[in-house]
Amino acid sequence: MMNLSTLPNALPNEKVVLFLRRHWIDLIRIFFFSGVLFVLPVVVGTLIEFANPDLIAHVFWGPALVVTLVAYLLVILVLTLTEVTDYWLDVWIVTTERIINTEQQGLFNRVVSEVYLYQIQDVTSEQKGLLATFLTFGDVFVQTAAERERFQFKNIDNPEDVKIAIGGLAKTCKNTHGHAVHHEEEVPGE
């Protein structure tokens, strides 16, 4: 397991400032869709019982339905757990020196990247949509001078505050390294 107090390749006096996960609404989405899929057999079972009650008591199709139901429930459960794992392992760690981006893409793909705060050129926060505005979640984009994809903090809580925090940390870090930082802000609805 990863220990926040002993990060890999930690620099001297490096401290964790922010530990971020996706907003809890993503977890609600997962459980909502899983809930619908778990309830589906009840609906189908009721329809079968209504349309053809003999089917459940049938010598072959009765057991076949039970087997299908057990298999279905196990598959849905494991898919739900995989989504929860994906949610749990998508983390962004902001320290006094760098940002560590860890993204779990499915069960067999994992991307870990990091950017040093003095490399940051631009920090952008973005909240799109009614739900994101009300629940204050959204994305934060961190752009560096290097020709690489910009860092994206996906669906995090309070992206505005995170943007300000990263901007402040980057500024402090850049002063140490003798550079300046530029902040950009996107206001929802504009």
Partner: peptide, 21 residues
């Protein structure tokens, strides 16, 4: 059952290996 158990194992492995203490 074997397939789902394997997936469960991988989920637990990922959490144990890459999760935060």
């Amino acid at each position: 059952v074997a397939f789902t158990a394997l997936f469960l194992f991988f989920n637990i492995f990922h959490l144990a290996r890459y999760g935060v203490v």
